[in-house]
Design a protein around this nucleic acid. Structure first.
Lengths: 270, 270
DNA sequence: TCTGCACCCTCCCCCCGGGGGAGGGTGCAG
DNA sequence: CTGCACCCTCCCCCGGGGGGAGGGTGCAGA
């Protein structure tokens, strides 16, 4: 073990392709402690054994893993835990990729030279009592939450009287967190687990139908919003979505049909 | 045209799913000017026509397009130019994806429980004169630059006396920008365009061979570096790579063989 | 017409993960 | 012993937001 050979921060930088500044930052963050720090001068000294660690950090950073998570990964002595943490981040990367794909799809539709005319209907909806699951969720967790809630609803409501729907508080889109409710219409809604009866109030809805995956549903939202504004209406409450045709019905996303209803009320002309 | 209906920033926020703060920021950045700003109160007022613009911004931001570039895209009135700018960013996204893929591959190798023993040889190399192309480049542009330089070399040196190589200044890896040289050995190197004769100085090299794509070549660099350190050597100059088997020879990346040579010199023991 | 309240304003500080540069101390080779 | 490359700390900057303070505004109900 003659590796008592000690490396200055500059040498270590050349060997690891991490900048000197970055190495100092990793030291401060407790991520990569130098093998020795001279008490008098403050000089940092590294050893060859630290190169693999530095490389792992480098790679994790390339994958945009936050420094705190990198630290967690390095600290976990158990290889199984470590692998799990890494796999977790790789999943995160994948879902990020999915969002990117969706954004690209949506952008393509937005940049269409001639957007299709939007078909909006004004509809008065009476109060309805449904079987519902509701919660406060983060915007990015909505899909996962929805899947779980829907599964629970399906288990408790074997024979729904119609298609499922969702109610989304505007705050969800403004601040990234908000109240969400998913429901199935049924006569005499049960109470079981998270499922309970909820009465949706009567409202006047501006309704349009989005066709296809939800990748570019925001564009339809925008078209609906523009229509609402031009018809001297204002938004009065949480959005309602109705899943006329969804993944429960067909695996072909192009066939999906989602009704979007925005509660509105008349506004005096300017 | 009854869309004189004017929207407060809060209403506009609800319609576009952009936070109020973010809308204000976009105003300050000149990205999305409100239709009207009340001189007395400073209140921002928007119209329905601005919704699509806000959505385009939203999507581009989801794709991590910097605000300045978003502005460029919005300002370009010509749809062709606009499409080109967007396509440019999509290409950028793709190459980012490529880098992510490479980082994942490299990480997998790094987290192997038992790393393969590295096979390093100390080799004295005499001064050689070669046909070369050199330049100062950004680290991220190296691959593209290399392809162009190599094509030029191939055109001017029809019958090389050996395999191609590269010389990379350490600064390239430290600061992301540095001097790069690519060369082909040939008797009597010509001068033509960017191609010119260069004499590589004699050095002592610590040499190892990396097998496979360059995705995880940094790991081999690290192993070589650790070996160098443990053998009481220090790095003395720019790295030399020799492409024994590369994309010129076979399309199968698994068969590629790259020799990495780090100039070294002896160091006194601690 | 008043009052209450939701809404809006600006301003400042914080986050992350780095880079630039100033100003000053250190280690080592010639 | 001197010069110079190297190293140190400290502060400010970037982008793209978020949190919150402190104060002005618009409008609906009484």
């Amino acid at each position: 073990m003659q590796s008592a050979r000690v490396l200055s921060i500059g040498e270590f930088s050349r060997l690891t392709h991490l900048s000197v500044r970055t190495l100092r930052r990793y030291h401060d963050a407790g991520l990569l402690e130098p093998a020795r720090v001279d008490a008098a001068s403050g000089y940092r000294y590294y050893t060859g054994e630290q190169i693999p660690t530095a490389q792992v950090i480098h790679r994790l950073r390339e994958l945009d893993v936050p420094l705190t998570d990198v630290q967690r990964i390095l600290r976990s002595s158990d290889p199984g835990t470590r692998a799990a943490l890494v796999a977790d981040h790789l999943h995160r990367l994948e879902s990020g990729l999915e969002r990117t794909r969706a954004a690209v799809a949506s952008l393509r539709r937005l940049l269409q030279p001639e957007p299709a005319a939007v078909d909006v209907e004004l509809r008065r909806v009476p109060a309805t009592t449904v079987a519902a699951v509701e919660d406060d969720v983060q915007l990015r967790d909505v899909l996962g939450w929805y899947a779980g809630a829907m599964a629970e609803l399906d288990a408790v409501v074997p024979e729904p009287a119609g298609v499922p729907g969702g109610v989304y508080e505007n705050e969800l889109f403004e601040t990234g967190r908000g109240h969400v409710l998913v429901h199935l219409p049924v006569a005499g809604p049960p109470s079981s687990g998270r499922v309970h009866p909820v009465t949706l109030p009567a409202v006047e809805l501006a309704v349009t139908t989005h066709v296809g995956t939800h990748d570019d549903i925001d564009v339809t939202y925008g078209e609906l919003g523009a229509w609402v504004v031009e018809h001297l209406l204002a938004v009065a409450g949480p959005v309602r979505e109705t899943y006329l045709v969804g993944p429960r019905d067909t695996a072909d996303p192009a066939a999906w049909r989602t009704e979007i209803g925005w509660p509105v009320f008349q506004v005096a002309p300017a």
